[in-house]
């Protein structure tokens, strides 16, 4: 808790259309910590995550990465950050391995094919390596996206409902992945509607949305 914050939000405000979702939001997250974003539907959880990725810009305030506004240090920040949204970012016409290859190429790091294959195997996709993603089930595609997250080698993970579509084994897998990532000093900001067992890691919670609405 005493380590300096790596990711922080200062007086953040977000509006959708002319509706204000939240104002004056503060938080700071240090290495090895997980931030669980909570709130009801339509309260701005996804909007907050998209603000943190830099995809959208806040109505007021700023997000800082290592003490600098993410707008000013965009390149470094995006090198250090990986985002998994509602959509998987998987091309249906490509195989899981091809998907990971292009993902690596587009985020500007070298593609390590053996690592990608072993990661996909570890996630239970051993029999799907050469199939186009279109024939995979929803949960399997989510696993491909998770494999992309693992091979990206990012320090900060921003995960929007990563458990959607996963079975019990999948959920357990995500739990162990998160624990490993945090124990290695990584950071996670995530939302989920499901219960997660994450013992031994620092979990903070953040309530999004005006309390009187809840």
């Amino acid at each position: 808790m005493d380590s300096p914050p790596v990711l922080s939000a200062h007086d953040l405000a977000c509006a959708r259309g002319d509706r204000s979702l939240f104002v004056g939001m503060h938080f700071a997250l240090a290495a090895g910590e997980l931030l669980m974003v909570q709130g009801g539907n339509g309260q701005g959880k996804t909007s907050l995550l998209r603000l943190l990725t830099g995809l959208s810009s806040p109505a007021a305030g700023e997000v800082q990465w290592r003490g600098r506004a993410i707008g000013q240090t965009r390149e470094t920040f995006h090198r250090d950050m990986a985002y998994l949204g509602h959509a998987n970012g998987i091309k249906e016409d490509l195989t899981p391995v091809e998907n990971l290859r292009f993902q690596a190429g587009l985020s500007g790091h070298a593609f390590d094919e053996p690592l990608a294959e072993s990661t996909l195997r570890k996630l239970g996709l051993a029999r799907c390596l050469d199939l186009p993603a279109r024939v995979l089930s929803f949960g399997q595609r989510r696993r491909v996206a998770l494999a992309g997250l693992l091979t990206a080698g990012a320090l900060l993970w921003i995960l929007d409902e990563p458990l959607t579509g996963l079975d019990v084994h999948g959920v357990a897998l995500v739990e162990s992945i998160l624990r490993d990532h945090l124990n290695r000093g990584g950071l996670v900001v995530m939302t989920t509607h499901q219960a997660l067992t994450l013992d031994g890691v620092a979990v903070r919670t953040l309530q999004v949305g005006r309390q009187e609405d809840a």
Binding site: L55, M81, A87, K91
Partner: peptide, 14 residues
């Protein structure tokens, strides 16, 4: 845009 890969490409450091 539909499958989310546009988001990922915009989040590239490039």
């Amino acid at each position: 845009h539909r499958d989310g890969s546009l988001e990922q490409m915009l989040l590239s450091p490039e």
